[in-house]
Write a protein that binds this DNA or RNA. Structure first.
Lengths: 144, 144
DNA sequence: GACTTATGTAATAGTATAAGTTACATGAAA
DNA sequence: TTTCATGTAACTTATACTATTACATAAGTC
């Protein structure tokens, strides 16, 4: 199964915006992401709705931050991209009448939820500021 | 993203086989799974290769266990279905030259691996015997 | 005020993966 | 030798994700 990289793509975009002294257009971001500007706008829609970024139209328009990097965690970003499914595996029919299938579901479900909970807990522990600080600056090539 | 239920499907099938005093045909299993016999055979191929089950051709043929339910864990089953991807989210390009993307990858990767590790640890702690014992028997309807 | 630049979003097209089906070969038991 | 069962390749759907096109909206420029 192919993994969705929407969550990390959005983080990547946020760092590009954070690193820029001016607004950044969807087109520039799309270049860095090697995709289409429309895809960028679509990915960022939830972040705008959640007040993490804003976007201006017209000349010198584009994206800029509207949140405190110290206050916002990866969990907030995760929610802003509409909390995509974390696990690639699951149960076929959680309301099966088959006792055997129910046993499988009950047993595996616990493990699945524990793993998801751990992951979300980790997200809550990492602020965007912390992520931003982890960048190893490179004078020759730090925009992409 | 649609979750793969191959792993839990195979567990479900194993319980059906474990619960039957005789061999079970792919056709019967397919009925319980509401799918096609060929899909069942395909799903079980890895389990046969790993010695967890065997299958006989011809009259009174079908599937039967060839492992000790006390010795085999969910992890063994997971490996036998070729260790499908556990997480539905990931990074786009783990070898990007962009320092910003690298920072995102490094940070999220840690969280992803921890969650995966936890899940696999849980799998290792659950034997098929334990799973089998968890079935709440129901005299009226215990095959499906 | 017309023009340029930018976003917003609906609609469409393209692509990849998984699931389901058909067809036929193999082999064991009746 | 007929029947029943698996093994597997090939093909067909189904579905979801990604990318693209098209056009409306709005802000700044000339």
């Amino acid at each position: 199964m192919k993994k969705s990289s929407k969550f990390s793509d959005v983080l990547h975009i946020l760092l590009h915006i954070a690193d820029s002294p001016t607004t950044v257009t969807s087109e520039k971001l799309a270049k860095a992401m090697q995709t289409n500007p429309v895809v960028v706008r679509r990915m960022m829609a939830g972040l705008r709705e959640n007040g993490l970024v804003r976007s201006d139209k017209g000349h010198s328009g584009g994206w800029f931050l509207s949140c405190d990097l110290d206050k916002v965690t990866l969990f907030d970003v995760y929610e802003a991209v509409e909390s995509p499914t974390l696990l690639a595996i699951g149960n076929r029919n959680e309301n099966s009448v088959c006792q055997l299938e129910k046993a499988v579901t009950a047993t595996t479900q616990k493990a699945f939820i524990d793993a998801e909970t751990l992951l979300l807990k980790k997200f809550k522990d990492i602020t965007l500021a912390k992520l931003h600080m982890s960048i190893k600056k490179d004078a020759h090539n730090h925009t992409h």
